[in-house]
């Protein structure tokens, strides 16, 4: 039977979607909820964007961040010499 769900439940289901295929019942309830709830429609898009931006931000920083300081390199050289 199709169950009407709240925004709280709808957003929980939206955040589970990347990790599991929703069973038929919750999937249908979510589909119906998204037909009439503009806020959860926005959340559905934004939750995907958040994940994409987090990955993109980390990838950008991998290539454009600062380098090791001379002091840090020196400390590591000493530590590696002691450990090697």
């Amino acid at each position: 039977m199709l169950r009407l769900i709240t925004c709280q439940n709808a957003t929980r289901l939206l955040d589970q979607r990347p990790d599991r295929a929703l069973p038929w019942g919750p999937r249908a309830s979510l589909w119906v909820h998204l037909r009439y709830c503009p806020y959860c429609q926005r959340y559905a898009k934004q939750t995907v964007l958040l994940a994409e931006w987090a990955k993109a931000a980390a990838t950008t920083r991998e290539h454009s961040g600062p380098t090791l300081s001379a002091a840090a390199k020196q400390r590591m050289r000493e530590r590696l010499a002691a450990g090697g």
């Binding site: 980390a58 920083r61 991998e62 380098t67 090791l68």
Partner: peptide, 10 residues
């Protein structure tokens, strides 16, 4: 060193 550091810092 620098490449690993940037990755870790990201």
């Amino acid at each position: 060193g620098d490449e690993l550091f940037r990755f870790a810092l990201s």
